[in-house]
């Protein structure tokens, strides 16, 4: 393959999402320092734990995508299946369904508790930052409790004076295990 520069919206290959080496730290958008980023991730986790999926959706940009690969180190969501791969349109539908009283797989509803930590800024440029974080999520539903954990990559950008998620990739440590149905976004 030629060294053609991929468009900005293309997916992070493991290589591209690695921290920039031997390069002077570039300017971070004013309001995206590490502390602010951590706060943002905590706020996101809280919205999900509280089941405020509509508010969670509002954190994403108009052409965002949300991706949970099915393989460790998966290169892209187009040539290999994914536990979840939602472009903005499908993400909206997912969130609308989560509010449906006819979503039988959420009858009764799940309760979740998330811990987010080990946040680092992996990459930064004029338009935004790429964050790497670790998470644990406990999901309780109908007498049983499941534990999920892994690494999240967030691409945060400033849009209209607010922080928005341009894309989010979640790598579960057990992404290739036999899994019971997944209804809760990570």
């Amino acid at each position: 393959m030629a060294k053609k520069r991929k468009p900005k919206t293309s997916l992070p290959s493991p290589r591209r999402s690695a921290p920039p080496r031997s390069r002077a730290t570039r300017a971070t958008p004013l309001s995206l320092d590490l502390h602010r980023c951590e706060q943002f991730l905590q706020q996101e986790a809280r919205l999900l734990d509280e089941g405020k999926f509509g508010d969670w959706l509002a954190l994403f940009t108009a052409d965002a995508w949300y991706w949970v690969p099915s393989e460790p180190g998966q290169d892209n969501p187009h040539d290999t299946v994914s536990l979840i791969y939602d472009d903005r349109r499908l993400l909206e539908t997912r969130v609308r369904r989560l509010a449906s009283p006819r979503m039988y797989s959420q009858e009764p509803r799940s309760r979740t508790s998330r811990m987010v930590g080990s946040v680092t800024i992996e990459d930064t440029d004029r338009t935004g930052v790429t964050l790497r974080s670790k998470f644990l999520m406990i999901e309780y539903r109908r007498n049983s409790q499941r534990l999920f954990g892994g690494t999240a990559l967030h691409r945060l950008v400033m849009a209209g004076g607010a922080i928005r998620i341009a894309w989010k990739r979640v790598d579960l440590v057990n992404c290739d295990a036999p899994l019971d149905g997944i209804t809760q976004p990570f």
Partner: peptide, 29 residues
């Protein structure tokens, strides 16, 4: 049984951004 996704997909605006994959999913639902 699939009513929740049928209704959610029927209510979905086709004007919202899709890279093509979501469109296939929504049409299937």
């Amino acid at each position: 049984a699939h009513r929740s996704s049928i209704e959610a997909s029927q209510a979905q605006s086709d004007d919202v951004h899709s890279d093509g994959s979501g469109e296939i999913a929504i049409r299937q639902m």
